[in-house]
């Protein structure tokens, strides 16, 4: 699309910019990043930045996440050509009924995303970073990865995975008969491990799959 190409060249000199992370790390970013991060692209369109500019502060993003996002964009720099730039995520009507699949993560992306985990919370961090930077491809890979982890698990396994405790859905909706309804989520945090286990006991496999 001709208009997109023109847009790209609006800020094509200089071709690299500096950005700084929350924890003060400074990174050089080039076209591959700028073209895929809508947030940065919009910033650069608004700001008038000279060659020796101060790094653009990205206060929401840790250095490790920013670095990973840059690596991701470098690898995917050519993908962009096939994605129409005017695709608007907020176009709900168009997007609303599109089927979503998560079995289409490329091998490179799978390897890439392996460095982030749910346990350490880094997988959430990279998704939030992708969301803030508005890098659609990275956001999708992150979300699909977690979706794939959830798939097929039972509720106990999901709780374990996300490290969350059972928290009764609340009055007026699903009130178990003689159970823990009066407990607020805060109380649940204070349960001993043993108590938690007794509430979320893992069923024996033969009961699940006959």
């Amino acid at each position: 699309m001709a208009t997109n190409v023109e847009e790209t060249y609006l800020y094509s000199s200089p071709t690299t910019f500096k950005v700084s992370s929350k924890d003060g790390e400074i990174f050089d970013i080039d076209d591959s990043f700028i073209n895929q991060s809508k947030t940065i692209k919009n910033m650069l369109n608004v700001l008038d930045i000279a060659d020796n500019h101060m790094p653009i502060p990205l206060q929401n993003i840790k250095g490790t996440m920013l670095n990973a996002a840059i690596v991701f964009c470098k690898y995917h720099k050519n993908d962009l050509l096939s994605i129409p730039d005017d695709e608007d995520e907020d176009d709900f009507e168009r997007d609303a009924y599109e089927p979503r699949r998560s079995d289409d993560i490329s091998e490179w992306d799978k390897e890439f995303i392996k460095q982030f985990t749910v346990e350490e919370g880094t997988l959430f961090d990279i998704i939030m970073a992708a969301n803030y930077l508005d890098i659609k491809a990275l956001l999708a890979v992150g979300c699909k990865t977690i979706a794939n982890m959830v798939r097929g698990k039972n509720s106990d396994q999901v709780r374990q995975m996300f490290n969350i405790s059972y928290d009764p859905p609340g009055e007026g909706l699903n009130t178990p008969r003689n159970s823990v309804t009066s407990k607020e989520s805060g109380d649940n945090q204070l349960l001993t491990t043993q108590e938690k286990e007794s509430r979320c006991k893992t069923p024996s496999p033969e009961l699940m799959y006959d």
Binding site: V150, G152, V158, D167, S185
Partner: peptide, 10 residues
């Protein structure tokens, strides 16, 4: 999977 999620917590 959505139903499973719905009963994990509030």
């Amino acid at each position: 999977d959505l139903l499973t999620l719905s009963i994990t917590n509030k």
